[in-house]
Design a protein around this nucleic acid. Structure first.
Lengths: 199, 199
DNA sequence: TCTTCATTGCACACCAGTGTGCAATCTACT
DNA sequence: AGTAGATTGCACACTGGTGTGCAATGAAGA
């Protein structure tokens, strides 16, 4: 890789800082404006527009990052050709930090940029649907819902749990795994859930 | 009941029409403006403001209606003192048309009026949490998540299924019941789900 | 030193939505 | 006929956010 000049490095740092801060700020208020993001990043609004021509560009970049990371995880997991339930468990385990980081996308998917985000998420959704489909075909997952809806529901739930996770970050990934397995209709999940005493 | 004058009746009709149409319009776009609602109701924007002083008033009214109906159902169901799983099944069955009608509230809960809606929904959420709590205490529901989160998740899922229900309105209530039972950790739901062949 | 360029601090235009004011109109009721 | 009141049509002010233009600043790089 070509060594970056100090200037270019500084610019990249600013850019990354904006992106990171944007995830935070939008996470607390999905309707936060460019001004909020800018000031939280210790920068002027005008500067943000220097890096991202429009608000949509910013959000699209965030979404693309999320999609890339999530797709990588899903591809890795499905490459092993394990049974669908085992694949799912591994998927959630590795997806968790990503889902937690990009949990705001769940809210952002509704509203102004919904269609743009949905489009970017499309290929990922498709792959995930395939996994659920395969699980149903091999009688590992229940068939109470068609694969497209069931997969959406399951991974929306993951994000929802990640979103309600403003305090206990430790037990949540386990809870997310169990909850999703349960709603996918994996009977063994019940036994696991029973061991997991919370109250 | 005192017989309404034709004028008063006409006004009420207009008001009801606005409310009904608002559910539709907001259902398709939660960010729809007063102008969209007005024209969809065959009325001028100014008239809407005659019935509802502000956008918040309109949405609050819708929310109050929803809360009232949902609370009625929940109160009825829990009054019988059945086991939690049986109560839940009956609850969803009777909740379904209400959830389907007010499905937009799921999206509306985020965004500008989120706190107002959340406040109105508070008492209902509390009652629902109690039901889930009771289910966990009697080992009918699993304990993978604390009652407040689990109840939120379960009934959000109901609304989500109702929201994705733009075509097949028949099988959905059954699917919603099964899905929620599964995520609540009711093992018998699996058997029911297996009978319900979709593919 | 001189140049380049990211950043800054304003300015501005623009847009979309909200909520209000008021005269005009049309219709039900008296 | 006459009145009350719901509705209309238009005007307006206000808000809050977006995106742009441009000169000034300051620091890295030649």
């Amino acid at each position: 890789m070509p060594a970056e000049s100090s200037r270019a490095r500084s610019m990249n740092e600013t850019r990354e800082r904006i992106l990171n801060v944007a995830l935070d700020v939008l996470g607390q208020d999905p309707d936060a404006g460019m001004a909020d993001i800018a000031s939280a990043a210790g920068v002027v609004r005008r500067t943000v527009y220097g890096h991202f021509p429009s608000r949509l560009d910013l959000i699209r970049t965030l979404t693309e990052q999320a999609v890339t990371e999530m797709t990588t995880v899903l591809t890795d997991v499905t490459a092993a050709a394990k049974p669908a339930d085992a694949a799912w468990v591994e998927f959630i385990a590795r997806l968790w930090p990503v889902a937690h980081r990009y949990r705001v996308l769940l809210a952002l998917r509704r509203g102004e940029y919904g269609t743009a985000i949905h489009a970017l998420l499309g290929p990922f959704d498709e792959r995930l649907t395939n996994l659920v489909q395969q699980g149903q075909d091999t009688d590992v997952f229940a068939k109470h819902l068609p694969p497209p809806i069931l997969s959406q529901l399951a991974y929306s739930t993951i994000f929802a749990i990640a979103d309600s996770d403003l305090s206990n970050g430790i037990r949540s990934p386990r809870a997310a795994t169990i909850t999703s397995l349960l709603m996918l209709g994996v009977p063994e999940a019940r036994a696991i859930a029973l061991v997991d005493d919370q109250g």
